[in-house]
Design a protein around this nucleic acid. Structure first.
Lengths: 110, 110
DNA sequence: AAAAATTATCGTAATATTGCGATATAACTT
DNA sequence: AAGTTATATCGCAATATTACGATAATTTTT
């Protein structure tokens, strides 16, 4: 069917899945890496850096933006994208909680 | 085209994207949640818990296993799945590095 | 040995994702 | 105003993902 079932899962489960899904593509990881490497927001050197067309990059930027992972503000004729620090911390929280719960498991059975 | 381009990205970027992709589905998040909640590995109460068929659950388990996120060992006529602690720590490391790099960014520009 | 239980796999249908060229939009530059 | 630059969107084709019923494979139970 191709459609992801969301009923029957908790809101948090659905929300977290969407976050991770947004991170689940090398182009989107590369965009994040680039933002972090230039230590400021980016305009669009991305087109010169990624092995993808402008249209495709724009699409990936939109997905990251819709997931809340990056924010973009219009800056004259270009757009200034940078990481949403709060959301990154949220993701960290999810993983940290997993690690913590896992640590409290009784036996490493497998 | 539907096919994800991997050439032109680093190996690490591709690898990390695959990890996050594996986490990017509510059923797979729910599976992880359940393993953590029962504090031990699971056999297959999953069929009674998730709103999905046995076939579909088996598919999601395989994806988690292929990504290295869970491990399964055959245990008589059922299978014992549990989290791969090492891989969870790897994921934590990825996120922690992101947070760290982001923190060292000069100006919160956007 | 037959039946039951547990899990994986196959085949298939529906939908989503990816990628790109072409085009649109908007703002700057001259 | 015309051209240039930066970004978004549309439309499309190719491939991937999701979900499930049916079936296979394996082990346990009876």
């Amino acid at each position: 069917m191709g459609i992801t079932k969301t009923t029957g899962f908790t809101q948090v489960q659905n929300k977290n899945a969407l976050l991770f899904k947004a991170l689940g593509h090398p182009a989107r990881i590369a965009i994040i890496d680039h933002i972090l490497s230039v230590k400021t927001c980016i305009c669009s050197d991305l087109v010169d850096i990624l092995p993808l067309s402008q249209a495709t990059i724009s699409q990936h930027l939109r997905e990251l933006k819709e997931a809340g992972i990056i924010q973009g503000t219009i800056e004259g004729n270009s757009i200034c994208y940078c990481l949403n620090t709060e959301l990154m911390l949220e993701i960290k929280q999810i993983i940290d909680t997993y690690i913590l719960l896992n640590r409290s498991n009784q036996t490493p059975c497998c």
